[in-house]
Design a protein around this nucleic acid. Structure first.
Length: 949
RNA sequence: GCCAGAGUGGCGGAAUUGGUAGACGCGCUGGAUUCAAAAUCCAGUAUUCGCAAGGAUGUGCGGGUUCAAUUCCCGCCUCUGGUACCA
């Protein structure tokens, strides 16, 4: 029989589906293992070869776990709500519900083609009302809870209300937006609106007015992690700060636990570092500065030791005291500054230059220790939502303060002597205190501790921890998301929908375009948004990360209509043992999921504190992207493009060209590099940038391809070099590769490219090697005449040796996620067996099993031919037998001072001493040792004998 | 700037706890087969001196520990990713 992948693949795809081979149920007699992939959002582009990289790895791992006795949960689903799906719908004009479903069908077909072992009976999709009903339910839970810092967990808001009723704000230690003090009777006197706004200070899901990231082009606000370098992560549209009333999640309440929780999970150090960085914990102090009147400005500093160098205070522009303390004489200055500041917001992404703009309020504060008057300023460089939104500026100890002080000619007082410390920066925590009264002579470290105690003792301040982490914006002014289970009455008070009324379904809407005015498309659907005279539904929707923050729990019990997941299921599956996905979710999805999980833990809905025990980040598969350079001179009056490679090969000076590289892909269908300027490439380039439809392209052979006149037109540099994306015309569809080489070959090649964590460019050069290997592997079972040649003969000894070495290595390599080295070992093994003409069942049967996780189709086909009724994927993975690995004799290199001088053949179980003596007795060794003193002899069993002289 | 990770042939990459660096694959060179090509098979392939046997050098750079360092320590350089008025 000839190796016919496509026949084998379609045969087994059908059988696996019919027999529900990969369906899994809870089984208390087996240990569980949960292998999870980050589910895709079904975009219109379909999967490219980069997507399945992680899926293939986790599939191999899941299959191996199954074959080694674990009950493996390995599900898949779709992140169907959110911006990408909606953006695609907008681009094509097709309703997101339809385009999402169409895309899902396409994804499913592509995934099935690759032969994954997902249990599709557990599929979830976030846009399914039966699913998002529980997303809404979790949201309501967040709304109904606050974070009690003393108990260090979430508590029902009713407990808080009870406390307010009895004792007001006294004794409350909870995560909150602000901490107004009030008594029990104050509470009783509050209006419902006042009570509501007070509780909003504490709720884990709350509404607030504040500056948010507004993206005009997308028509919605975005969370901090959805904004990169001042533009939206999706689409790269500009983002500005806009003041809006929005829902937010109090993720900051969990900052400390999110930080500490990472100590006990197996994530890469770099990923943990990214999360730590994002949380951004710093220890310092709140210090009170009295203003002339009885007002107090609380500042945050990590350097209380430098307080004697503090020569002015700076407030953020929207600090609550700005208005009340500003003197009328300064009003004009402040207003002028405020105007400048507003217009600047939009372009502050340009970065680089520090912004030194600011204005004096006209007011002074009293230095808490020296009681001198120091001026209070307002400046852009102080952020309102970090620390207290106010700082004590110490120009001698902080570069920004120094720059600001120099610019505005403010006083600078040196407080740290660094004379002995060459090259130390002004912010380094080194040196000795000077000009600092009772701190003089102390080291920085000591002075910090001393001040903390001093502040506390004298009631001037408290030790405090600040985080960079901000509460997460949770409102989107978009159509394609979960509606909030929230409505407002005529007074604007917030009401929860009844849990029994969930799901609160997203209505059908034909015109789902976002509007630039910040109103959600749902607001246009009056009949839905205003069901009765006094009832106004929340028209914003939840962000993309809502549904993805808990989907991994739903897989455990996907069809439960009474609970988000049953106790029985969650107690069996517990948590995700292995999570595989892209590092791009490091601060978004992974942070929110951990936050939600910890919240659900507090409510006793899940038994574990962390959702993902082990996490592996697969690298990105990149497309090959070529740089083009725009020629300065026009060619017969036309803009002239030439490839960077061509410039090099012609020895042309780049100076002749304006150095504006533009990255354009000219990769042909299978990702062959070096294709330079192909007609196809030019066509797709022009399609993309039709303003260059008339340019001139010079190809590698010197031919000029004519096009038009656009002189002087600048081409911006594309930053995402290497990414495989439609935009670069370098997307390779796995289906095409599979059609040519088969799914097994595709899987193995993706794994063979290199370590899973590494990013690497896709090139098809090496795939022939895998293809060749699979044919060789097949030829162990079928000879050239296409006859089955496996027999029950007794294998030769060397076959056992190589087989068992391969078994051992495969088990180890899969466990440590090193699939490329396992495949190398297969190649060695197959070559050896072919050389010796091995035909024995005893060798060839276990070999197929080794290959089963990697090449499930071919393995299954051969397994059946070997006479097994049950699927190979239900069989038990081979384990190695040490006895076949032990060599009967070993060649020891005999070295003198580490240099190999001879060899000696001995049995492995020869005693060390005897090896030593035999080695020294060798004539060529004796020659070397003549007249030398032997310092010692080192024998490494099985490896070498080293004589040190 | 700060944090994290990584630098090994022409290329992708091996070397799991320090033990013969370059496994495996690609590419390249030569040969066999063929009328020829494709496919397949065999041999070679770090650099350098040498006809060869063999020698010397070699894992970003400079030091160190060790009989022995890609691996451990110290100091640099470069690249990648994250982050950036975070007080």
């Amino acid at each position: 029989m000839k190796l016919d992948y496509s026949a084998i693949e379609s045969k087994w795809k059908k059988i696996w589906a019919e027999t529900e081979l990969y369906k899994v149920v809870e089984d208390s007699t087996l240990p569980k293992y949960y292998v999870l992939d980050m589910f895709p959002y079904p975009s219109g582009a379909g999967l490219h070869v980069g997507h399945p990289l992680g899926y293939v790895a986790s599939d191999i791992y899941a299959r191996h776990k199954r074959m080694t006795g674990f009950n493996v949960l390995h599900p898949m689903g779709y992140d169907a709500f959110g911006l990408p799906a909606e953006q695609y719908a907008l681009d094509t004009g097709v309703h997101p519900a339809k385009s999402t479903s169409d895309n899902i069908k396409r994804y499913r077909a592509q995934l099935d083609n690759i032969g994954f072992s997902f249990d599709w009976s557990r599929q979830v999709r976030t846009d399914d009302p039966a699913y998002y009903r529980w997303t809404q339910w979790i949201f309501l839970n967040l709304f109904q809870h606050y974070y009690d810092n003393t108990a260090d967990k979430a508590q029902p808001i009713s407990t808080l209300i009870e406390h307010f009723r009895k004792s007001g704000s006294t004794g409350i230690n909870a995560a909150s937006s602000s901490h107004p003090a009030f008594t029990a009777s104050d509470w009783q006197k509050m209006t419902p609106a006042e009570k509501e706004s007070m509780l909003m200070n504490y709720r884990l899901a709350y509404r607030k007015t504040g500056f948010v990231n507004w993206c005009e082009a997308l028509g919605t606000v975005l969370a901090n992690d959805e904004v990169k370098d001042g533009v939206s992560e999706r689409g790269g549209h500009p983002v500005v700060q806009k003041e809006m009333m929005q829902w937010a999640l109090r993720v900051t309440a969990y900052a400390e636990r999110l930080l500490n929780g990472m100590d006990n999970i197996q994530w890469s150090e770099s990923l943990k570092a990214i999360q730590r960085n994002w949380i951004g914990r710093s220890e310092g102090a709140f210090i009170d500065f009295k203003v002339d009147s009885d007002k107090v400005i609380k500042v945050f500093t990590t350097r209380p030791d430098t307080i004697f160098g503090s020569t002015f205070l700076v407030l953020a522009k929207d600090h609550e005291l700005v208005k009340s303390i500003s003197s009328s004489a300064q009003k004009d200055f402040i207003e002028a500054y405020s105007e400048r500041s507003k217009s600047r917001v939009a372009d502050n992404k340009s970065g680089g230059e520090k912004n030194l703009d600011g204005a004096w309020t006209g007011a002074y504060a009293l230095h808490p220790i020296t009681n001198t008057k120091i001026p209070i300023w307002i400046a852009d460089y102080v952020l309102s939502d970090y620390g207290t939104g106010a700082i004590m500026a110490v120009p001698s100890g902080d570069e920004r303060d120094l720059a600001f002080a120099t610019h505005h000619q403010l006083e600078v007082v040196e407080v740290i002597d660094r004379s002995g410390l060459e090259g130390a920066g002004i912010e380094d925590k080194e040196g000795t205190l000077i000009n600092s009264s009772f701190l003089d002579g102390m080291t920085v470290e000591k002075a910090i501790q001393h001040m903390l105690t001093y502040l506390d003792k004298n009631n001037l301040g408290t030790k405090q921890i600040a985080y960079k982490l901000r509460d997460a914006n949770f409102s989107r002014q978009r159509y394609w998301g979960e509606p909030f289970p929230i409505f407002y009455d005529a007074d604007g008070l917030v009401h929860e929908m009844d849990i029994s009324s969930l799901p609160h379904e997203l209505p059908d809407l034909d015109d789902f375009k976002p509007s630039p005015d910040g109103r959600s498309p749902l607001a246009r659907l009056d009949a839905w948004a205003r069901p009765s005279a006094n009832k106004f539904l929340e028209t914003d929707t939840m962000p993309g990360y809502a549904g993805s923050s808990w989907y991994f729990l739903r897989y455990m019990d996907p069809n439960n209509t009474g609970e988000f997941v049953s106790k029985k299921a969650i107690n069996y599956w517990q948590d995700v043992d292995l999570y595989v996905g892209g590092v791009e979710h490091a601060v978004g999805h992974l942070m929110y999921s951990r936050f939600w999980h910890k919240f659900l833990y507090d409510l006793d809905y899940v038994p574990t504190q962390e959702p993902f025990k082990k996490l592996v980040n697969q690298g990105m598969i990149q497309g090959v992207v070529e740089s083009l350079i725009l020629l300065k001179k026009r060619h017969e009056g036309k803009v002239h493009f030439i490839s960077a490679d061509l410039i090099k090969s012609k020895g042309l000076s780049q100076d002749a060209y304006s150095a504006i590289p533009v990255h354009i892909d000219f990769v042909s269908a299978y990702g062959q590099p070096n294709s330079h300027l192909t007609t196809e490439g030019i066509k797709s380039f022009i399609e993309w940038r039709n303003e260059y439809a008339d340019a001139v392209f010079e190809s590698a052979d010197g031919t000029l391809h004519t096009l038009g006149d656009q002189e002087g037109a600048l081409i911006e540099t594309l930053s995402e070099v290497g990414k495989m994306s439609k935009r670069y015309h370098n997307v390779v569809n796995p289906d095409d590769v599979i059609e040519k080489y088969g799914a097994d070959c595709f899987r193995m090649y993706e794994m063979f490219l290199g370590p899973i964590e590494q990013s690497k460019p896709w090139d098809m050069m090496g795939i022939e090697g895998i293809n060749k290997f699979l044919r060789k592997f097949w030829s162990l079972y079928y000879n050239d005449q296409e006859e089955w040649i496996v027999d029950d003969v007794e294998p030769n000894k060397d076959s056992y040796k190589v087989l068992h070495a391969t078994i051992k290595k495969t088990n180890e390599d899969i466990e440590r996620f090193s699939f490329n080295t396992a495949i190398s070992q297969f190649m060695i093994c197959v070559n050896e067996l072919r050389k010796s003409g091995e035909q024995a069942n005893k060798i060839l049967a276990p070999l197929v099993q080794l290959m089963a996780p990697f090449a499930p189709f071919i393995a299954e086909e051969i397994w059946q031919k070997l006479g097994h009724d049950e699927s190979i994927h239900k069989s038990t993975f081979p384990t190695h037998d040490e006895k076949w690995l032990v060599n009967t004799s070993t060649v020891y290199p005999v070295c003198i001072n580490g240099k190999k001088r001879s060899e000696i053949t001995l049995s492995v179980d020869t005693p060390k001493e005897q090896i030593e003596t035999s080695a020294k007795a060798l004539p060529e060794i004796q020659k070397w040792l003549e007249g030398q003193t032997i310092k010692k002899t080192i024998v490494i069993p099985g490896k070498m004998v080293n004589i040190v002289i």
